[in-house]
Structure formats: structure tokens, C-alpha cells
Design a protein around this nucleic acid. Structure first.
Lengths: 219, 219
DNA sequence: CCATCTTTCGAACGTTTGTTCGATTTAGAA
DNA sequence: TTCTAAATCGAACAAACGTTCGAAAGATGG
């Protein structure tokens, strides 16, 4: 008789992987006939048979008489492990959007997105942010006006501890958050305003909070 | 009465949330009858009707004649202890956001947000838009650079047939959409670029599509 | 070789499911 | 009020779907 947790047969592995790919692409489960077509089983009953084995061994579950009710319990490794494991501590993804906290006062020391600093969450399209861990800052002053960033603008900042030359960053300098262009030269870190009325700042002791990835403005 | 149906009725919101809960619990999509039972629609056809609306507006997709093939495009937050939340007015509120269509080519004549023009929906915080009926336009060129609106920026436009002096508007001029500052003087309508390299345009024959209320930029 | 178990097949069956159509009700504007 | 569009209903229908059953083909071991 079929014994306990036997190893999966080639066919069963084939089915498991097809289900995974199908759901990834289409967003819902395949029917028995679709599975059969994909793995080369001409009889629905054969699919039913294999699915019963998989179900009995805990690889998946399904609800009787309900179409497309397969529920995979195990992700059979195809190959990959994704290195893009971003820690999201405060965002709740809304479909195509991310909820990003607007940070009020910036206090040196503690975590930037500590709860008491958050006044509100803004939904922002992922198209505008990309992947990562974000927070929002309200721009104060017009030191970045030549970069088309105005007083009152909201900037979406992806948390990261450093930056590349030319990036616009949010930095913590003397307990104050500021948005400037990042530049390293002569062994020094500079925070450059984009407004000829302002002078470059030596940022050697500044803390880079993250990189500005989007700008939001309400007129 | 605009037949736009770009908004989310209480019932549609109800359906969206039920689908989300159902899939979270069961691991697959509900059938039309299950949806009907849950939200109080005794006729499958009514569910079909509502689902078509949701599908047309990009909230979900489904494959014809395939059971349980609903694919949610947006996760509506539960939000409510008061499920029968009615806030009609205009755009689709996602919790705190509105889903706004990005309009591609602008053709004179037909409705701006005709379906074939819409390439995608962006969630935008209501804080950035206020109330109204909106669409999104991609800015082309740097004629508004002094207003801190750059090439490639997305502008949120509230539909309105006219504007006030000083408003930044989207106007249709010779089958082309353009973003300029609106000004009426000497009995003429002017569309002013905010870039000294460009000349003011006589906008007497231009069609005002709406007013720019927000700017979104991905860096 | 035979015996046994596994796997596949094909067909039939009953159920589930999405669609269609016309009629009715509801809601809002004129 | 009357008119129009949206929303709902009910019934009927065809397609899609999972289950069952008997038979046949492989596979494995003695």
C-alpha cells in the first residue's frame, strides 16, 4: 500500500511545480484538466488520482467539489531563493501601493520611524517607489529649488545608511533632518544645496537616513 | 449625470473586501454565488454585474468562463466598522487614496479618460488631491521648470472646464496636451510657460481639461 | 512466469459555475 | 410627477469542473 511520506514521484513533482507556476502567472488555481494538459495526463481521473496522493501526504489541500480549490502547502524548490528580503516594519502594502509613514519631528538616536514620530500614513504607488523600506519627510525651505524640490513638498525616502555621489538624500545634522545632494570628495562628505543662495555643508558628521526616490507635491 | 462609473459604490467596496477575506482564509477565489451570499445579492447576475464594473475600472480582473478566476488588483483596507460607507462624489477612495488613471495619448474630441487611453491606475493619497474627478498626465518637456515641474513628472489633474488666473492647468491645444499656467488678460486667454526660454501661447482656442493639483516625481 | 500494486485511461455522471436575457425595482435628475 | 440609468432579480442555459467506476497498461518482486 501507499505508505507514509514517500518521496514524490516525478509526476507529482511535475504537478506541484506546474501549480506553483500557474498560480504565479494567473493569480488563481488551475483546474484538473489544465493540470492534465500541462503535465501530459489525458484523463482527468489521473489528475484526480495524483492530487489525492499529494493531498494525503500533506503537500496540498483541496475542497471537495469546489473547482480550483487547490491550496499548496509546500513550495517545492524550483531553484531560487530571493535575496531581496526587505524588512518592512511600518508599511502595509496595498496592492499596487505602499502605505508610507509621514515622519514629523526627527529625534537623533532612536529609530526614525518610531511610532510617536508618525503623524500619518500616505498611500504611494509602488511605481513611484520601487522596492524597499520607506518614510516620508516634509521639505522645509527652498534650498533644493533648483532640483525642483520646493518648500512643503513631500519626499519619499528609501532607508539606506549611505549614498552615491549625486543622490539626493535625507540627512540628520544636529538633530535636524535636511534634504540635500550627496557628494564625497577629498575625503570629505558634502551636502550640497541646489540653490545658489545657499552654501555647501560639510556633512562628515551627518547621518544619512536614506535616499530620496520620489517627490510629491500638493499645489 | 456622468455615467463615468469611476467610483466605488458601497456594494463594490463590500465585494472587494469579501473577496480579500475569502481568499485570505480559503486560499482560493470565491465563486459568484459565494460572493452573492456574503454580500446579500440573491441573483448571480447581480454579482456578475458588479464584478463587471469592478473589472472595467481596474479593481480586479477575471477570465471569461473560468470559475474562481478573480484576481484582485488592489487590496482595499478593511477600514470600516461601518461597512455601509457611502461617499460618492467622485473618485475611488482606497482607504485614504484615490485610484487615478494615467492617460496616455490624448485625442481631441472623445472623453479624456476613455478606456483605451488608460494605461494604468495609480493610487494617490487624498491628502494630495482633495475631492474631485481626476486623471494623470505625464509631463513632457521642461517648459514648466521654474514652477518645479520637470520632464517626466506625473501631474494629477482635477477635471474642470475652466480655471482661475495663476492656476497651472492641462490644456488641449492642437490635439496635444500641455501643462501651462493659466492667465486671462485683455480678453485673451494665455498659456504661460514657466521657463524663460519659452514664449507665452495664445490659448483662446485651447480646451482646458483641468487643473493641476499635485505633482508626482520618481527620481 | 505470475502476483500484486501503481498508474493511466476513457467515459459517464452530477454538480458547480459564469453568462445571458428580460423584467422589475430603485435612485436621481428634470 | 415623469424620465432615465443603475441595480437587482429570477430563470434558463452551456460550459467547466470534480468524482466515480471499470478496465487496461506499467512496474516490481518473487
Amino acid at each position: 500500500m501507499a505508505k507514509k511520506s514517500e518521496q514524490l514521484s516525478a509526476r507529482q513533482r511535475q504537478i506541484m511545480q506546474f501549480i506553483r507556476h500557474f498560480t504565479a502567472e494567473r493569480g488563481y488555481m488551475p483546474s484538473y484538466r489544465e493540470i492534465g494538459d500541462a503535465v501530459g495526463l489525458s484523463a482527468v481521473a489521473s489528475v484526480s488520482y495524483q492530487l489525492k496522493q499529494l493531498s494525503d501526504n500533506g503537500y496540498l489541500s483541496r475542497d471537495e467539489n469546489i473547482s480550483r480549490s487547490i491550496d499548496l502547502k509546500i513550495d517545492l524548490p524550483d531553484s531560487e531563493a530571493s535575496p531581496w528580503n526587505v524588512e518592512e516594519e511600518n508599511q502595509i502594502p496595498i496592492g499596487d501601493a505602499a502605505l508610507i509613514p509621514l515622519v514629523g519631528r526627527i529625534a537623533a538616536g532612536g529609530p526614525i520611524t518610531a511610532e510617536q514620530n508618525i503623524s500619518e500614513y500616505y498611500p504611494v504607488s509602488r511605481q513611484l517607489t520601487g522596492k524597499g523600506d520607506f518614510f516620508l519627510l516634509t521639505v522645509s525651505g527652498d534650498s533644493m529649488i533648483d532640483a525642483a524640490i520646493c518648500d512643503g513638498d513631500l519626499v519619499v525616502i528609501r532607508k539606506q545608511p549611505t549614498a552615491e555621489n549625486g543622490d539626493i538624500v535625507a540627512a540628520l545634522l544636529n538633530d535636524e533632518a535636511t534634504v540635500k545632494t550627496f557628494r564625497q570628495r577629498d575625503g570629505h562628505t558634502w551636502l550640497l544645496p541646489q540653490n545658489s543662495a545657499y552654501e555647501p555643508i560639510v556633512g562628515d558628521h551627518a547621518t544619512i537616513m536614506g535616499k530620496v526616490v520620489s517627490v510629491l507635491r500638493k499645489l
